[in-house]
Nucleic acid binder design. Structure first.
Lengths: 356, 356
DNA sequence: CAGGATAGGTAACGCGCGTTACTTGGTGCG
DNA sequence: CGCACCAAGTAACGCGCGTTACCTATCCTG
């Protein structure tokens, strides 16, 4: 396995551009022939022998196709673009990973353009126009928009020029197809798990009640309870800021509100950060997890859920899957297939750890 | 602000490609003239009037330059490529953000290519070749390699064809310039902070002692102690797995090893995950933070450090800055400037929160 | 043995744009 | 009036490649 210094290819390529012409000359054929074998044409009509000679020449010269020129000539770029503020927020970066991997499989290149967070809070909630523009200049074949958290967004007009799919967000004013987590089913599976463990009095630490995550997860929780013939005691639902401190305070309120015999035996925290705070509130009172109080979270923020003590049982947001599905959907659209559904829901799997 | 439906531009552009020729016709000039005003040539010699006419035509038709064609003709792509496994690991995604933002400022486009984690553990520790190859096919002007954690890497041979900079890693066998965190200075500032708070017996929860992070941070800690006329008691340095559990166990050992009067009054945890575990060990013993034991971490993993109770004082890894500096360095190299230094160290700032 | 059908190629155009060389009409100057 | 000069603009080439139309030799068929 001695590393021979026969890296002539690299040396040759370094001097600014081995082209198909060079390959053709080296192999003693026309450039067209080279193009044919490199693109594996069906009706090839190139003899095995010259095909081999050409491949040798490619190796020998270290030829590397010029993607730009190819795109120009063939009128297709093999690029998708994704506009996202996610780069800023490690939280949902798995969307990108899922999309990347899927694109890679389809031999597409994913161009990632950052979207200014600034816009996201302003009156125009749209993801950034400049990024979209840049991507269109690259002649991407399709566009993806990905948000850090599930919400409605406004998308730039120019988007209408190419197929577009939204991930973890939905078109607030149009009909663009979108991929979003099935919050309701997620809330349901969480509470079902608690019921299955024998809990009957379940406290819920809520998020801002107006966002899709809160609406869906709470509805799911109610469904699960209803099926068990139970109702959600309004006193057991407390709102919290979406932080550890918020979770701590909410948990304190919920735990101190009732005499011990009425105290909930389980807490459904609508996100993991709040669960983190709830842990402190519970431990502070000399209670154990899950012995005295079971806790279940949502989001599966690895850095928290997998490192809390005991490890947090939680419902995962399917970021990676959403990213992959987004690319698949986009591929279908660019291939001219009709839109399957305006909104595709992706399941949120329960991750069993040790807090229930 | 009524939204008029005068989106003729979009409509015009939709039908596959408004070109410079179309603009030229619409403005009644030659394509060359259009090219000149769009690229803002110095020796323009285009009258203000026709320049205006051309710009109007651009607006009217919704013309958008074709980046690929431009690259082909001008022989420069305005693209940098970054090969990284970071997409997989939210941990260091800020490197990408920093690089993105800087590239955006320089009007460059950053192509992000995923690197298979698989390779990173194998005997060939190199970041993936396929990704590099793909990027070179796009004719990127420069390459960046970014790793999730500070270490030596092997880079594909083909890399030598364009300027290359390593971020958060260094070339294990060559001379490629790299940007890495100043671990030593970071360790030093952490311990200095503890000393300043009056601590004299400081425990250290170490990482795998062979990795650059551990070597540097520990050396820095020793330096700070030496300057205060102190030495690091070997019994106070315990190794730990780089997880919360590892930190918990290490903290238990260190806390239980000494009678109360000899017990360290502060713990320097070489990463935040271990600090998270140390918190539990401390609280379990009925001790308070920072009253009885001060804790300082490293890495500034926001999801942990900012949400622990009390919030964790820690030393930040300058991911975003490293990303930006990487792009700046690359810009200098592509501009033909000589390499400043083989290895640029970036400072690790102390983030004061509430655990010291 | 004429005629067509194939295998095995090649010449040449165009993708959209940057760029260099060239043209043209007007103006200043001796 | 003749010449140089400049502002204003254009024709035309080439970037590297995909693709279509064409061309030539060989083989088969009737």
């Amino acid at each position: 396995m001695a590393k021979t210094t026969t890296s002539k290819p690299a040396a040759a390529a370094r001097q600014r551009g081995v082209t198909m012409n060079d390959v053709a000359k080296h192999a003693g054929v026309s450039r067209t022939a080279v193009s044919f074998v490199l693109s594996n044409r069906e009706n090839a009509s190139i003899s095995e022998e010259t095909r081999a000679r050409i491949n040798e020449a490619v190796q020998a010269l270290g030829y590397r196709p010029n993607a730009g020129a190819r795109a120009l000539a063939s009128q297709r770029s093999d690029w998708y673009g994704i506009v996202t503020e996610i780069v800023t927020a490690p939280f949902a970066v798995d969307i990108i990973k899922g999309a990347q991997d899927q694109a890679w499989l389809d031999r597409k290149f994913l161009l990632i353009a950052p979207s200014d967070q600034a816009d996201a809070v302003g009156p125009n909630q749209g993801l950034e126009d400049a990024a979209t523009e840049k991507l269109l200049e690259q002649r991407v074949e399709g566009l993806l928009y990905a948000a850090t958290f599930h919400r409605g967004v406004h998308v730039p007009e120019s988007t209408k020029e190419v197929p577009t799919v939204l991930i973890n967000c939905f078109d607030a004013d149009g009909k663009l197809p979108s991929i979003v987590p099935d919050e309701r089913a997620g809330g349901r599976v969480a509470v079902e798990r608690l019921l299955q463990a024998g809990h009957r009095r379940i406290g819920v630490i809520n998020l801002d009640p107006d966002i899709p995550a809160a609406i869906g997860r709470l509805a799911g929780a109610r469904e699960a309870l209803a099926e068990a013939g139970l109702e959600l005691d309004p006193g057991l639902v407390v709102p919290g800021y979406a932080t550890a401190d918020g979770g701590y305070e909410a948990a304190c309120r919920i735990l101190d509100r009732y005499p011990q015999e009425d105290r909930p035996t389980a807490l459904f925290c609508l996100n993991d950060r709040m669960a983190m705070g709830a842990y402190d509130a519970i431990k502070e009172r000399g209670l154990t997890i899950p012995g005295d109080i079971a806790v279940i979270g949502f989001d599966n923020q690895e850095l928290i859920a997998a490192y809390l003590r005991p490890k947090l049982t939680t419902v995962a947001l399917p970021f990676e899957k959403m990213g992959a599905l987004g690319v698949q959907t986009l591929a279908a659209l660019t291939a001219g297939q009709p839109i399957i559904a305006d909104q595709q829901l992706v399941g949120c799997p329960l991750l069993e750890r040790s807090s229930v």
